[in-house]
Structures are given as structure tokens and as C-alpha cells.
Simulated scan of single mutants.
Amino acid sequence: MSFSHSSGDDDENRVFVNFNHESTFSSLAVGTRNRFRLYNIKDLDRLELLYEDDSDYTAIAERLFSSSLLAIVSLSSPRKLRVCHYKKRTEITSFSYTNTILAVKLNRLRLVVCLEDSIFIYNITDLKFIHSIRQTQRNPNGIIALASSSEQCYLAYPAKQDKGEVNIFDAHKLDNKLTIAAHDNPLVSLTFDTKGTKLATASDRGTVIRVFDTSNGDCIYEFRRGYARCVSIYSLSFSPDSQFLCASSNTETVHIFKLNEPQPQDDNLAVIFKSYVKKFCQTAGYFDSVADIMNQWRSFATVKLPLVSPGSRTICAITYSNQRSNVLIATTDGYLYVYDLNLNEGGDCTLIRQHRLIDDIACSDGQQSSTTATATTSTSSPSSS
């Protein structure tokens, strides 16, 4: 998931951030009012500047894994998609649409473009149009997800505007696979794991996050971010091994959930308590809600972010590199935070690095960089797509 942020009507402080979509999360795209940058984030101690361009505001930027292929939409031309080879600094092709482009996704088989009421699918090898999903339910926020796996090349998007149903479409076979009744409220975030076998979902209530088996639509995990306070979930992201799921929201806390633990079973005390509750509850619906809450898991680990400016958004990712496990949070304030994640014990994550990603807008109030964002221009570039 990617975000642009603007404080009120001040476009001078608009920032775009987006990780590339692969298991290693090896790069981060950053755009401001007059500059676009692509960072290599494999070395979290010292970021490497892969590409820089003086350009218009970037509304969307998607990199095909670690290749040189970029799909870019600018704020000045929101209906035009440019596909570029950033190493050669050339435009390969462009596509124009009748409405604003809300999301773009790439994998080794497909390029997917999402508008408010339609989705267009292209073959990634020759960028030829091959399929469209038209007259979809209104999707004004461009909520879609594309699995990175070629074997499970699934595309997920909302099936209904007012309820949390999600369609899974096989973008390889170009056929509908299944529909999942994920939530009672409208969807705000979707993401697949690396293999495309799991789909994580969140609704606009933001209290419960569910994980579904994409082969049959069964709910296999259910996590509770909170009990009473409704929040806006900004991003969901699986770890490379699909054993952890992180979620960022409009609060200062990022939650990390563990997937490889067995579902909790009722012990004698739980059975007695449920029987007691059932006896005194007047409706089965109320009892069911209590039982559901008892069976939902809380977070395995948490990240507490520094003070961010009002309206700032975040995207999160879990990475494994150099025998280290980290949680990355990029903000539309223009920061990249790196936290240490203990895979065995969980708990509170420790901030170990803080990078300032941009130098052409003013720092947000209350922000101070503990680590200067040092970036060295790359002398070598990733392989061409």
C-alpha cells in the first residue's frame, strides 16, 4: 500500500511513500513536490539512492520487485500511467483512462490498474491489455491487492461498497475464484502473503484483522487490534515467511501478530465462564459476540512511533536481513523508522534507526531525526525487467 499526504490545503508538504512488493521489501519510493527518489533499503544502516528525478508530484509509484521497471502516475496527470525503465531513464509506454487512477499493482505476470469502478489487467512481458473487470462496486480509495506469486496470481478487491466482502480473481487464468464475507463493515486494507495462499483484511472499524485461506475462503486467523476504539488501518503486511503480520493505523502503535501458533482451545475455566455468560445473557447474538472476543488474539509485538504530524499516514513491513528481523515504518512526514523485532519473545520493539528521506520540505512539528538520512548514489543498478 502507498500513501500521499498533505497537511490541509498545503501541497508544499505532500509526500508519497511506497515499498516495493516482494518478500524482501528491498526498496522504498519517495516523492515530493519537485522530486522523486528510489532508495535501496537492503542495508538499513545506510540507505542507497538508486534513482532520483526532478519531476511533478508523484501520486503512485510501483516498482516491479528489484527490476528497473517503474509504473508512475503524477498528480498533474492522474488519468495517465507511465511505464518507465528507470536505469535507462526512458518511457516504455503509457496508458490513458477516462477516470483517475487509484492504484497500480505489478507482479511477474500482470500489471493491474484500478479505477473507481473498473480494473484493467495487462500482460507484464509485452504490456498488452488482456482483460478488464468493469462495473465493479464503487471503490473510491482503490482498495486492491495483487499476490506476488506467479503460481497463485490472485487479485483481491471489494465485492460490495457498504459491506466487507472481497472478491478473489485469478489474474493468470482470468477467472473469478471466490467471494469472501470478511467483515460487516466496508474494507479499508487488503494484502496477500508472498505465496498468495493467505489474504489479510481489515474494515473501517479497525478493531479486528482476519486472515483467510485463498484456496477455500476459510478464516484461519483472527486478530484483535483493540476492543473499543475504532481506528483507520493504513496498511497490512506479511513477513517474508508468512509467520507474522503487521498493521499500521492512525494511532502511534503498530501491531505485529504471530500466525504460527495453534488456535487457542477452550480450557475448563473458559467453558465455565462462557456458560455463566450465556446463562445471564438475554440474546444469543450478545453471547456470540462475547465468545468471539475471547477467541481473538492480541498482538505478539508492538511498535510505538515517535510523534507524527496530524494527518500523517504510515506503511509498514517486516524484513529479515543479515540475521536481523526488523519492522519498517515509512511515514508521509518523510521518515523511515527501523525497529528491532524479537521473533521469539515479541513485546515492545526497539527503535534502532531513523532516516530522514527528504530534504526539500520542512520537517514536521515535533520531529527530530536521531539518525541523519544518509544516501549514497548507486553506481550499479538492479537488473532490467
Rank of each mutant, 00 (worst) to 15 (best):
S242L: 08
L155G: 09
A145N: 06
V208Y: 01
S203F: 01
L127T: 03
T376H: 11
A171C: 09
D10S: 12
S2L: 08
L305K: 10
Y122V: 04
L305G: 05
K163W: 05
F169S: 02
V308G: 03
A156C: 08
P140T: 10
K105L: 05
S55E: 08
L111N: 01
Y157R: 07
E91Q: 15
D340P: 00
V338A: 05
N18Y: 07
S67L: 04
V113Q: 02
S7P: 05
L102Q: 10
Q161Y: 11
L174Y: 02
T331N: 05
P310D: 09
R224V: 01
A291I: 05
R210V: 01
D184C: 07
P382V: 01
I329P: 00
R108A: 12
P306M: 11
D162N: 12
A270I: 08
L174N: 09
P264D: 06
L357T: 07
D9G: 09
K87Q: 08
L44I: 13
L357S: 04
D267K: 08
D9L: 13
Q282E: 12
S381W: 15
R229D: 11
I272A: 12
S27P: 01
R224E: 10
G346N: 08
L328H: 09
D365M: 06
E62Y: 00
R134T: 15
A317L: 03
Q265V: 11
T350R: 15
S2W: 10
G311I: 07
R210L: 02
K80Y: 00
L47Q: 03
W297I: 13
S378Q: 06
S23P: 03
D218R: 14
T179Q: 14
G31E: 03
F120D: 08
T201D: 06
A103F: 00
L146E: 09
L199Y: 02
S248D: 07
E345K: 15
C349F: 05
T179S: 13
I256E: 04
P78T: 02
Y337A: 03
V104M: 00
D267I: 03
V17P: 03
